[in-house]
Design a protein around this nucleic acid. Sequence first.
DNA 1: CATCTTAGTTTGTCCGACAATCGGACCAAT
DNA 2: ATTGGTCCGATTGTCGGACAAACTAAGATG
Lengths: 252, 252
Amino acid sequence: MSETKPLFQPLEPAPAYKRLCQAIEAEIMAGRLKPGDQLPTETALAEAFALNRSTVREGIRLLEQSGLAERVAGRRLAVARPSTKALGRRVSQALVLHDVTFRELWQTIAALEPAAAAYAAEARTEADLLALQRNLRQSEAATSNTQQLSALDVAFHALVAEAAHNRALILAREAVGQLFYPAFAAVVTRLDTAAARLLTAHRAIVEAIERRDADEARRWMVRHIDDFHRGYCMVGLDPEAPIGRVQEEDSQ
Amino acid sequence: MSETKPLFQPLEPAPAYKRLCQAIEAEIMAGRLKPGDQLPTETALAEAFALNRSTVREGIRLLEQSGLAERVAGRRLAVARPSTKALGRRVSQALVLHDVTFRELWQTIAALEPAAAAYAAEARTEADLLALQRNLRQSEAATSNTQQLSALDVAFHALVAEAAHNRALILAREAVGQLFYPAFAAVVTRLDTAAARLLTAHRAIVEAIERRDADEARRWMVRHIDDFHRGYCMVGLDPEAPIGRVQEEDSQ
DNA sequence: CATCTTAGTTTGTCCGACAATCGGACCAAT
DNA sequence: ATTGGTCCGATTGTCGGACAAACTAAGATG
């Protein structure tokens, strides 16, 4: 953070493809290009920037990868907003590569989830509630299938965050939440009391959200998260060990 | 979340340049390619994947943009971990494009900062403490310069997070924290009591962290964050308005 | 041994080309 | 009129080759 500022700016013209990307990015951030707008064709861009189409293509790849542009129907390029899911995936990936430990993830989730639950109690809509109750019923029916139960738990917490109607919160916890999948599975598999405790907590949280009782929702979420930490240690897993690498299928 | 799965998958083999990126990405995530490893040259990759160099280049751009590879000395491509800073920038950018409101950002930061303060009290090293104290002194000397004070405040909170030694927490709050810069400036400029209150809080937080008093650190941070929210409303800004777009100089 | 020179590598950029595919227009059949 | 088929142009994905600039490493020189 306390970096000595580089005194002399890069000054390097930077590769053309990168400058092209930055130029378009600037247009987007300045609002002159709005999400949904179609970008010119590759040849048109090449002409406009006085570059070769090959170079333009490389620049477009950068835009594409950062989520600021995407092909609408496989064809024409259009300005887009980076999707929450794609971003979450990138962040998760980065956390894994940095060998982030369970402790770090847990501390973060322990800060976010209770807040999400509380705000969900305040801001939830009827649709949110229905989705939560549906997830609850599915979880009750899947207590024996640990794989499915883990997936449903991940989904449950995502639903709570969505009910809070806070995209910053959703994004922050999505990235961390995804990485819990394997840990959840591990605990639920080895600890036979875990499934029941999980359901009790989920039920209480949904009820609190239904009654718009923010404090109660927060309290139960805290308990639920603490419980998970206890379970994690109880089955002999080390909180200081890096969370393993997971191979999830590509969505986006 | 409750998406109806699309029955028929895209089925498309995806463009070659994208598959190349995914292939290398998979190698990295599987640990067969470790950060720091040098990747083959473009021609070598082209040969290995039976593709043209142009196509390989496009794939490399994707890797580069996702932070999984970077040019070490302007030259050879090497595997890298996505930098916290670059990732934070992307997330910030996405939040802006989604027109996230001050309320959403504040709720998120209000969940993260107190946790960061508490963990900082537990995990801080001597170096962390020194950095915090240094920032405090600089802030005390800059009460009149609102621009500088805002920057120092952003840095202060980043330092607290760093002292917590939790990279997930650091990353999560970095993305949100950056966007506060303009809001901070606005409040400090228009509210002449703000600077003094800010300093009081920072001082108390640093002292608590020094004494390793997690509860006290958390309490003061909560107060500090609440205070900011109050100030924001007091100067007549609307918490439900989207946080504006900011033009920060490119680091990365 | 240190330094300079030189040749080979590698990247950034350009040019030109072609197949596949998408969009749309135009036409035929129910 | 709606549906289905065909054709044509536009656009993208991929390829091959080319060259200057920048870097690397080896060899030559003091």
